[in-house]
Amino acid sequence: MPDIVTVTDLRKTFDGGFEALKGVTLNIREGEVLALLGPNGAGKTTLISAVCGLTSITSGTITVGGHDVVRDFRESRRLIGLVPQEITLEPFEKVLNAVRFSRGLFGRPANDAYLEKLLKQLSLWDKKDGPTKELSGGMKRRVLIAKALAHEPRVLFLDEPTAGVDVELRKEMWDVVRELKEDGVTIILTTHYIEEAEEIADRVGVIAKGELLLVEEKDALMARMGKKELKIELQDPCEAIPPSLASYELERSADGFNLTYTYDTKGERTGITALLNDMAKSGLVLKDIQTSQSSLEEIFVDLVRSET
């Protein structure tokens, strides 16, 4: 897939001298869901604001659909939809009018058929004639998404779409993202919930202290960075780990029924075969085994910690 957004050596220094972005280079492919992970204050929102024209750029270049976001801002911004972190809506405005306003603002001719489809997709059609202040928090956020999509953008930025949102609503939001992806919209979302990136992203970027630490396929990242655990359930509890197995650094559960072996999938050899052989020799009888992969969360914590 070609790149729809390119960010090259982007730097942003605020008036106070704070360096929010320290030379970020990032290419976003058309049609993908990219999750930008990072702790608060890492520069995620600044990066999005720079692409959308809300923050001036100190140095570096950004293009969207091949258009420079500063020089050809009219062309580039037509392709972008932005859902901000905070819920910001004119409280007395009707939902449908708010969405129509957004479409007009981005220079698109009126198309109520499209807006109807959009509002129905976001389960807002029943509320179209009510003022936005009467909506629940989750609905307000969907109105913001509807406003961002009103001009049929090709790239959608979701800044912390599920911050402070309950579990049910978060799942609902993920469904929305998946549907949009199916419609071919490129989605960039920032989050500090790893679960979110793991659930819906194709690629994951990690930002900390204004630097992009990495961008990788989510699966590859997890495979590369991920440690796997082999859980072994024993027929009979073992009092202590036999000395012959000491080199495997097994963890024994309190009741002695479970042993956990941690191994690196990157390694040439996982050591599983040898472990199982040695266990058989030491007389331990296996009841069951299972493997599990460490989550993005653990990878992320490791990564940010090692950088700081």
Binding site: L54, L82, P84, E90, S102
Partner: peptide, 17 residues
């Protein structure tokens, strides 16, 4: 008002001079 409630972001990010 849009500055106060934050909706100004939309105008500032629109393809409009």
């Amino acid at each position: 008002f849009p500055k106060f409630i934050g909706t100004i972001y939309e105008v500032l990010s629109a393809p409009i001079g």
